[in-house]
Computed example of a mutant assay.
Amino acid sequence: MTIESRRATIQKLIDFEGIAGRPIADDADFLSLAERWVNHEIDMPEMRRLYQAVRDERRKRKLYPVPTAESFPIEPRPSSDEAPSEIDRITRCDFNE
């Protein structure tokens, strides 16, 4: 296939509702792989394998998101001036109430 015919094939995929009903026109990973295929850097089985790996990774990130700093808010520590009064407050607390 020529570069022009490969490019036309990719454009048909984009125009025809993407892959399995998922739009791909804005999918940078797919478009990057498609460009490599168009330029004969990879063959179609390799493109499929790489894109499947991308989709698997996306699915994994969606199911098991990586915790962010916002997930675990950190309470501010008392300054050194506040520490003695905080210690005093804690030690005066009656835990039997």
Rank of each mutant, 00 (worst) to 15 (best):
Thr2Asn: 13
Ile3Gln: 09
Arg7Tyr: 05
Thr9His: 10
Thr9Phe: 10
Thr9Trp: 04
Ile10Ala: 00
Ile10Trp: 00
Ile10Asn: 01
Gln11Gly: 01
Gln11Leu: 01
Lys12Tyr: 09
Glu17Gly: 03
Glu17Cys: 02
Gly18Gln: 09
Ile19Gly: 13
Pro23Leu: 06
Ile24Tyr: 07
Ala25Ser: 11
Ala25Asp: 13
Asp26Thr: 06
Asp26Pro: 02
Asp27Leu: 00
Ala28Glu: 14
Ala28His: 12
Phe30Glu: 05
Leu31Arg: 13
Ala34Arg: 03
Trp37Gly: 08
His40Arg: 05
Asp43Phe: 02
Met47Trp: 10
Arg48Ile: 15
Arg48Lys: 14
Arg49Cys: 06
Leu50Asp: 14
Tyr51Gln: 08
Gln52Cys: 09
Gln52Ser: 04
Ala53His: 02
Val54Asn: 03
Asp56Val: 03
Asp56Ile: 04
Glu57Met: 01
Arg59Met: 13
Arg59Ala: 11
Lys60Ala: 08
Lys60Val: 12
Arg61Met: 00
Lys62Met: 11
Leu63Val: 03
Tyr64Asn: 02
Pro65Ser: 07
Pro65Tyr: 00
Val66Cys: 05
Pro67Phe: 12
Thr68Glu: 13
Glu70Gln: 01
Ser71Ile: 04
Pro73Ile: 09
Pro73Tyr: 07
Ile74Glu: 15
Glu75Cys: 02
Pro76Glu: 15
Arg77Leu: 14
Ser79Trp: 10
Ser79Thr: 15
Asp81Arg: 01
Glu82Val: 04
Glu82Gln: 15
Glu82Asn: 10
Ala83Gln: 15
Glu86Phe: 04
Asp88Leu: 13
Asp88Phe: 09
Asp88Ser: 09
Arg89Thr: 09
Arg89Trp: 09
Ile90Glu: 07
Ile90Met: 10
Thr91Ile: 14
Arg92Pro: 08
Arg92Val: 06
Phe95Ala: 15
Phe95Lys: 08
Asn96Met: 10
